[in-house]
Design a protein around this nucleic acid. Structure first.
Length: 213
DNA sequence: TGCCAGGCCCTCTTTAGGGCCTT
């Protein structure tokens, strides 16, 4: 059984699909044991207009989208690529909404659970001056992945951040390689409770290893 | 310059307000 986690990033025309914003680009990287094992990336054509502000931010133009494949086709391919893998995004509240909205328009179900690297990093790196993706990358000295605010570069950066968090959890708290379910539990802890919870998890892990599991 | 949305979190809180994060 695969233990892959799908790290996703959308570029969009605005902040929320409830206000009519549409996706312009999606990228997904599959992470296994801290390593990227596969990638998916595509611009997508929805007919939505890209404002100059968004073009300045992302580099994505209306001209680029005119020749992009239809959004429904891209989203069906993306859903096949992800399969049943659990998903992770930086500020998952944002990307999960576009994942659900674009898949619904494509007639595909969206059933994957999401974990959020913003919530996780606020717990694991409480001293970081900022938990934006770019600032965390600088704080942790993660290697550059390309132009910020393009989907693949940001998905790769979020994946590198997730891998770093998994590595640090293993090293600091004697945890086994943290699976998605463990990360989901961790992001539900409050900042105040997170260290106690990690100690509890490490203790359970130690007991399990001693019992031969 | 600050606002625009939505959700989550923190705290000088919980009958609330403000900050952060995403495009």
């Amino acid at each position: 059984m695969s233990s892959a986690i799908a790290v996703i990033d959308f570029e969009t025309t605005g902040m929320t699909p409830t206000q009519g914003a549409r996706a312009t680009e999606v990228a997904i990287v599959l992470l296994e044991q801290g390593r990227v094992v596969d990638r998916f990336q595509s611009l997508m054509q929805t007919g939505a207009w890209v404002s100059p502000f968004i073009t300045d931010l992302t580099g994505i133009t209306n001209e680029m989208l005119r020749t992009a494949p239809p959004a429904a086709e891209v989203m069906c391919d993306a859903a096949r690529f992800v399969g049943s893998a659990p998903m992770v995004a930086h500020n998952a509240a944002f990307d999960s909404k576009f994942w659900q909205a674009e898949l619904e328009l494509a007639g595909e179900p969206a059933t994957q659970p999401f974990a959020c690297t913003v919530l996780l990093s606020r717990r694991i790196y409480q001293q970081a001056p900022s938990h934006s993706l770019g600032n965390l990358a600088r704080y942790l000295q993660l290697p550059s992945t390309g132009r910020a605010h393009r989907a693949l570069a940001d998905a790769e950066m979020a994946a590198a951040l997730l891998a770093r968090m998994q590595q640090d959890l293993c090293a600091r708290h004697a945890l086994p390689w943290p699976e998605h379910a463990l990360l989901m539990q961790l992001q539900r802890c409050t900042k105040a409770k997170v260290n106690g919870w990690l100690l509890e998890q490490a203790g359970q892990s130690l007991l399990a290893s001693q019992a031969g599991f």
